[in-house]
């Protein structure tokens, strides 16, 4: 990382400053390019000093993203980005922590961590680039894949399993901020990420990010997405948010929910000391 220290509030950092010199190896046309760009634009809007931000990822195409930013990066283990980011945030609560990865990484092998990260409500922003496929291993069904998708060699008759509903699960499990964007509308994704970072607690930003190689039909998402969850009208009531989800076709973008659940904080330092404790064991 070419770290040039930056002072907060100087307004001097541009989106380009948050990009590394590495050229992404994603396929031409991959939605993740726009998500990378949106993250860097959001960082510029927030003017987070580069040395005060971290991007933690797991394994997969989108999990390569830390290498393409100039902030602290951690390309970790498949599915384990969230617990690692939790540890990072616990040790350094002053950092702006992003978790980034794909639907396979986050909802399949890491699905358990996703539930508990929502429950724990650590103040970090989880950006899931959801293309409803495992791209890196060449096109297998992920948890968000439709049950009748027959494009995979592993499940040629379709996975036949009800798709994972990340927004419903996040809302059930206690996430504090829940949004959905579309990589084809990158400026809106920037806004969602900025709001997610500003909102305390665990923020989920699901970004529909087409895989043009293994799911070329996802190019049609440009027509199917609709920005009907206006960020300024985000629900603060879980019941209302659940009702909104019942009417959701999976392509509504915007902010679904802004909650006020208690945010995880490491235990307060105790006033007791070891010498006092030892008195209890004195013979």
């Amino acid at each position: 990382m070419d770290a040039k220290p930056t002072a907060p509030g100087t307004g001097s950092l541009k989106a380009q400053d948050y990009k590394s010199d590495l050229k992404p190896v994603w396929c031409p046309g991959c939605g993740d390019f726009a998500v990378l760009s949106a993250i860097t634009k959001a960082l510029a809007e927030l003017q987070v000093p580069r040395e005060d931000a971290a991007v933690v990822s797991g394994i997969g195409c989108s999990s390569r993203i830390p290498a393409y930013t100039s902030v602290y990066g951690f390309h970790s283990i498949h599915g384990r980005a969230l617990p690692i980011a939790t540890g990072l945030k616990a040790a350094r609560p002053d950092l702006t922590v992003f978790c980034a990865g794909g639907d396979g990484d986050g909802f399949s092998i890491g699905g358990n961590h996703f539930i508990h990260a929502c429950r724990r409500n650590v103040d970090l922003t989880y950006i899931v680039m959801d293309n409803e496929v495992y791209g890196m291993t060449k096109g297998q069904a992920s948890p968000t894949t439709e049950p009748d998708w027959t494009g995979s060699k592993l499940t040629p008759q379709g996975p036949g399993v009800a798709p994972f509903q990340p927004l419903e699960i996040a809302l059930s499990a206690g996430a504090n901020f829940i949004a959905r964007g579309f990589s084809g509308d990158p400026n809106f994704v920037v806004r969602l990420i900025v709001e997610a970072v500003r909102h305390p607690g665990f923020s989920l930003v699901q970004v529909l990010s087409p895989c043009v190689t293994f799911r070329p039909e996802q190019r049609a998402w440009k027509e199917t997405t609709h920005a009907d969850w206006a960020p300024e009208a985000a629900s603060t009531d879980r019941r209302e948010a659940f009702l909104r989800l019942l009417d959701d076709d999976g392509f509504t973008t915007g902010v679904l929910y802004k909650g006020h659940n208690p945010v995880f904080a490491p235990p307060h330092p105790s006033s007791a000391n070891l010498a006092d404790l030892e008195k209890g064991f004195a013979l």
């Binding site: 495992y134 890196m136 291993t137 060449k138 297998q140 060699k153 592993l154 499940t155 040629p156």
Partner: peptide
């Protein structure tokens, strides 16, 4: 479950 370089085996079985 797919993982490089094993994936072709289970894909082959699946076929």
């Amino acid at each position: 479950y797919p993982i490089t370089p094993q994936t072709h085996i289970v894909e082959g079985i699946s076929k």
